[in-house]
């Protein structure tokens, strides 16, 4: 399945804090080609995670527009937004985001349970993905019984469960040691390449960023008021 192009135009985001309003993105523009692999870098507070959340439909757009694969996210709400996240986006979180009360297999199956797929189909697909990320032998283990690298592989398998056209990874190796991080990055590269999905990764690590087609650098904004 081919990736989706992304168009971000004049996006501004502002948060209210006790110390006043903080503008993390101001009139921000970005264009990403379908299937492109983009690294997003910048210091803390620059808006990297916010940008990812906006493109992933996790956060409402305050100003500007974001169009992903022809869909203007500003027009999506409620179930339509949930359907966008389910059908188009696959997330990989720094903290893995696995549900502790479910096994590795069940975590992957859960991601497929919001679209009406049969349990048999879900189980078969989960097994395929566990094989693909090399962790089939840990299928019935819960997150607490998995190492960081194993957990992130499960998270990656879950992100791929619904064959997303857009993969968003927020510091995917932030909690991993060098060797494990390297293996996870290779897996991320390979799976993104195999699926043709557009890949956006937030990272602090220049070495990680250099593996991508393009790097953008975000700068922190000044407190607005």
């Amino acid at each position: 399945m081919a990736g989706v192009p992304i168009s971000v135009r004049d996006v501004s985001m502002r948060y209210s804090t006790r110390g006043g309003a903080v503008e993390v993105l101001a009139d921000f523009d970005l264009a990403v080609d379908a299937g492109e692999r983009l690294a997003i870098m910048g210091p803390s507070g620059a808006g990297k995670t916010t940008l990812l959340a906006l493109i992933g439909g996790l956060e409402a757009i305050q100003r500007g527009s974001i169009v992903v694969g022809g869909t203007d996210l500003a027009h999506l709400h409620g179930d339509a937004l949930a359907a966008y996240r389910y059908q188009t986006v696959g997330f990989v979180f720094q903290h893995f985001g696995l549900l502790g009360n479910l096994s590795a297999r069940e975590n992957i199956e859960l991601a497929m349970s919001f679209g009406g797929r049969s349990s048999r189909d879900r189980r078969a697909r989960a097994q395929l993905l566990l094989d693909a990320v090399g962790i089939a032998h840990r299928a019935d283990h819960r997150p607490a019984e998995l190492s960081g690298g194993e957990s992130q592989r499960v998270a990656l398998a879950r992100a791929l469960a619904n064959e997303p056209r857009l993969l968003l990874a927020d510091e995917p190796t932030g909690n991993l040691d060098g060797e494990t991080a390297e293996r996870v990055l290779e897996l991320l590269d390979r799976t993104a390449a195999d699926s043709g999905a557009t890949l956006l990764t937030v990272t602090h690590d220049p070495a990680v960023a250099r593996r991508f087609d393009r790097i953008i650098q975000l700068e922190p904004r000044v407190i607005a008021s």
Partner: peptide, 16 residues
């Protein structure tokens, strides 16, 4: 809170 956020991130609707 984070777990609920993850559920939504992977496609859960409010009613789910």
């Amino acid at each position: 809170r984070r777990e609920i956020g993850v559920l939504k991130a992977i496609g859960a609707r409010d009613r789910d």
